[in-house]
Amino acid sequence: MTLPSVDRLNAAICAIAATRDRAAFQIVFDHFAPRVKSYLVRLGASAPLAEDLAQEALLTVWRKAALFDPARASASTWIFTIARNLRIDAIRRERRPDLDPNDPSLQPEAERDAGDSLDWGKAEDRLRTALAALPKEQAEIISLSFLAEKPHSAIAAELGLPLGTVKSRIRLAMARLRLALGDSP
């Protein structure tokens, strides 16, 4: 079975927003629900809880499809943020102080952000390539940051590294990723 392309998944979410398209929803569900479940299991959720939250995440995709903007993020990035927030809410029982990227009170103004922002759809392709090309020791720390949910001090202890080394690897990795995005702050 070939995987649906990034463009196809993005388009499917737009179709859900535009016409409540259930066939499009099935494409998104089949692709992402097992990945969201896997992500939650990796972060320590039991299989039944991960199953419930993955279903909830995909239900959120259906309900909030109108907020998805392929110019700002790919389907996988958007769904990652949904899964991350659901997990914080359900497992840590914490509020997630979050930003609505369309909030007009953002400074400098959000409108200007949109005007001069890069095309994230394209930029994310480059970012994936850059992520795959990161030196192993940098990629390991980025991956642990997302899939182990440990403070960087714990990651440092686990890898037997000074905290400063972990932080500098993060900075190096982030610089490469930003370069790949073509962002020059």
């Binding site: 990945r35 790919s74 996988s76 990035t77 958007w78 943020t81 994230w120 930029a123 992520l131 990723l177």
Partner: peptide, 12 residues
């Protein structure tokens, strides 16, 4: 946003 895109890529 770039970090979240890295998260999206790992999810993929």
């Amino acid at each position: 946003a770039s970090s979240e895109a890295a998260g999206g890529s790992l999810l993929e």
